[in-house]
Deep mutational scan, measured.
Amino acid sequence: DWEDIVRFLRKLFELGEEVVIGDWHNHHREEIKRLIEWLEKHF
């Protein structure tokens, strides 16, 4: 279910905002944000 995936990604992203998950999070933050925005537009 796409909504569950979007919710999971958003939760992960919000957690990442508070607890910076090292370089991985910083590197992928923009991609995650773009992916969430893309999914919201399409689903």
Rank of each mutant, 00 (worst) to 15 (best):
E31T: 14
F13V: 04
E14G: 10
F43P: 02
F43L: 09
K11R: 11
K33R: 14
K41A: 07
L15G: 03
R29N: 10
R34M: 11
K33Q: 12
D1T: 14
H27F: 14
W24G: 05
R29K: 10
K41S: 08
H25S: 03
E14Q: 10
H42W: 15
R10F: 04
L15Y: 05
K33P: 01
K41N: 06
H28M: 15
W2Q: 01
I21S: 10
K41Y: 05
K41E: 05
I5L: 11
E37A: 07
W2G: 01
I32D: 00
I21Q: 08
I32C: 07
E17F: 15
E14F: 06
E3A: 08
W38F: 09
R29Y: 14
V19L: 14
E17P: 12
V6L: 14
V6C: 08
H42F: 15
V19A: 09
L15H: 03
L12W: 07
L35Q: 01
V20T: 09
K33H: 06
R7G: 06
K41H: 12
E30D: 07
E14T: 06
H25M: 15
D4I: 14
I5G: 01
R29W: 15
H28K: 04
H25I: 15
D23M: 04
E31F: 15
H25F: 15
I21K: 15
H28V: 15
V6T: 03
L9R: 00
E30S: 05
K11V: 08
R29P: 05
V20P: 09
R7C: 07
R34Q: 08
E14W: 12
D23C: 09
L39W: 08
W38G: 03
L35K: 00
H28W: 15
R7M: 05
H42V: 12
R7N: 11
E40K: 12
K11C: 07
W2P: 01
R10I: 13
K33N: 05
E18A: 14
I36D: 01
K33E: 09
D1E: 11
D1F: 15
D23K: 05
R7T: 02
D1L: 14
F8G: 04
D23F: 12
K33A: 10
V6P: 02
I5W: 14
I36H: 02
E37R: 10
W2F: 08
K11W: 15
R7F: 04
H28R: 10
W38R: 05
V6H: 06
V6M: 12
G16L: 15
V20E: 05
W38A: 05
L35H: 01
W38Y: 05
E3R: 13
V6Q: 03
F13T: 02
L12G: 00
H25N: 12
V19E: 04
K41T: 13
E31R: 11
V19K: 04
E30Q: 08
D4H: 10
G16H: 10
D23W: 11
D4Y: 13
G16S: 11
L15E: 03
K41P: 02
R7D: 11
D23Y: 03
G22K: 08
D23A: 05
L9C: 02
E40G: 06
E31Y: 13
L12F: 06
K33L: 10
E3Q: 12
K41F: 06
R34P: 02
H27S: 09
L35A: 05
D1M: 13
F13K: 02
W38Q: 04
W24S: 07
F43R: 03
N26L: 04
D1V: 14
L39K: 00
R29C: 08
E18D: 07
H27Y: 06
W24H: 07
E3V: 11
R34S: 10
R34K: 13
V6K: 09
I32G: 01
G22P: 13
F43S: 02
D4F: 14
I32S: 01
L12E: 00
G16V: 15
R34L: 14
W2M: 01
H27T: 10
I32P: 00
E3Y: 09
L12M: 05
L15F: 13
G16C: 05
E3L: 12
D23Q: 04
G16W: 15
V20L: 13
D4L: 15
H42S: 10
L9S: 00
L9E: 00
E31V: 13
L9D: 00
D1R: 13
E18Y: 10
L39I: 06
E17Q: 14
V20W: 10
D1Y: 14
E31I: 15
G22N: 08
E37I: 09
I36W: 11
W2R: 01
F43D: 03
I5E: 00
E37K: 07
R7P: 00
W2T: 01
I21R: 10
W24L: 12
W2L: 03
L12H: 00
E17C: 01
W24V: 06
R29F: 13
G22Q: 04
E3N: 05
K11Y: 15
G22D: 07
W38L: 06
E18V: 12
H25L: 15
I5Y: 04
E14L: 05
V19M: 09
K11D: 09
I32R: 01
I21E: 11
R7K: 12
G16M: 15
W24R: 09
R10E: 15
K41W: 12
I5K: 02
R7A: 07
E30R: 12
D4R: 14
H25G: 14
E40W: 15
V20Y: 08
L15P: 02
L35V: 06
F8R: 06
G16E: 07
L9G: 00
E40F: 13
V6A: 04
L12V: 03
E17L: 15
V19T: 06
I21H: 11
W38H: 03
W38S: 05
E3W: 14
F13D: 00
E37M: 10
R34D: 04
E37S: 09
K41I: 09
E14S: 05
I36L: 05
R29G: 07
V20D: 06
H42R: 11
F8Y: 07
E17S: 10
G16A: 15
E37P: 01
F8M: 11
E30N: 07
W24A: 08
E37L: 08
R10Q: 13
L9P: 00
D23I: 12
W38N: 02
I21V: 08
I32H: 02
E14M: 12
H27E: 05
L35C: 05
E37Q: 08
F43M: 04
K11M: 13
H27C: 05
E18M: 14
V19N: 05
W2Y: 03
V19H: 09
F13L: 09
F13H: 01
E14A: 10
E14C: 03
E3C: 09
K11S: 06
H27M: 11
K11P: 01
E18G: 08
V19P: 03
E18T: 12
H25K: 05
F13M: 07
E3T: 11
R7I: 06
R10D: 14
E17D: 06
V6F: 15
E3M: 11
H42L: 15
N26A: 13
V20N: 07
N26G: 10
F13G: 00
E40P: 01
V19S: 09
H25C: 10
V19W: 08
D23T: 02
L39T: 01
L39R: 00
E31N: 08
H28Y: 14
E40I: 14
L12I: 10
E37Y: 07
W24N: 09
I32Q: 02
V6Y: 14
K33T: 09
V20H: 10
R10K: 14
V6R: 03
F8A: 11
G16D: 04
F8T: 03
H42T: 07
W38C: 04
N26Y: 04
W24P: 05
H25D: 13
H42M: 14
E30G: 06
H28C: 03
N26E: 11
R29I: 12
F8N: 06
R34T: 05
L12Q: 00
E31W: 15
F13W: 13
E18N: 14
R34H: 10
G22F: 02
E17A: 15
K33V: 07
E17G: 13
F43I: 08
H25A: 10
E37D: 09
I21L: 12
L9I: 07
H27V: 08
E18L: 14
F8I: 13
I36Q: 02
D4P: 07
L9K: 00
E30V: 05
I21A: 11
R34C: 03
H28E: 04
K11E: 12
K41R: 10
H28F: 15
L35P: 00
L15M: 06
W38T: 03
E31L: 14
F13E: 01
L35S: 02
I5Q: 00
I32Y: 07
H28Q: 06
V20K: 12
E3D: 11
F43Q: 03
L15C: 06
E40H: 13
H25E: 10
F43C: 13
L12T: 00
D1G: 12
E17K: 14
D4E: 09
H42G: 05
E30H: 08
V6D: 02
D1P: 14
E18S: 13
I32N: 01
F8K: 08
D1H: 12
E30I: 10
L35F: 14
E14I: 07
G22A: 05
H42D: 03
